[in-house]
């Protein structure tokens, strides 16, 4: 049920992120969602894209370090309390959230990407509360 997320290692230096965005542009990759984690030395650029396999080979070709991670995607209502509801479900089962990021779509729902240690437990908890989970095809079809 999970979505594959692409992570890229970037040196925290002027021009380094551009090497990656240029590479994705040149390969005609469409970015659906992104988040960046940074420290003083490096950044981790995390992406949900329309064609992950193509993106991985284009980046590796240019010598970038990449990693694919399974993350959970779910749909939430785009109104106050929408995010709170989901966080509450995950907290209730005692699973720690590593990181998350959200994005809006043209419809009236928002999408949330969540990285946790135990995907199965979280998916089961969300499903039990009728929170719609996303498949990779849902995201790429956007």
């Amino acid at each position: 049920m999970s979505i594959r997320q692409l992570s890229v290692f970037v040196q925290n230096e002027a021009g380094k992120l551009q090497e990656i965005t240029d590479c994705l542009y040149a390969s005609n990759i469409d970015i659906r969602a992104l988040s960046v984690a940074e420290t003083q030395d490096f950044g981790i650029f995390r992406l949900i894209v329309d064609d992950i396999d193509k993106a991985v080979s284009a980046l590796q070709e240019e010598g970038h370090i990449v990693k694919i991670t399974d993350v959970i995607g779910c749909k939430l209502e785009d109104r106050p309390g929408g995010l709170a509801r989901i966080v509450k479900v995950i907290s209730a089962i005692g699973v720690n959230m590593e990181y998350m990021y959200a994005f809006l779509t043209k419809s009236d729902s928002a999408y949330l990407v969540i990285r946790v240690e135990d995907n199965d437990a979280v998916e089961a908890a969300l499903r039990a509360r009728d929170i719609p989970l996303l498949e990779e095809s849902d995201v790429t079809a956007l």
Binding site: Q5, S7, F9, T39, I65, V66, K67, E98
Partner: peptide, 15 residues
Amino acid sequence: ELTPDQFSDRVKDIA
């Protein structure tokens, strides 16, 4: 230099 197998999507792992 980090090698591809050492890379993680979590900042904590690299730290």
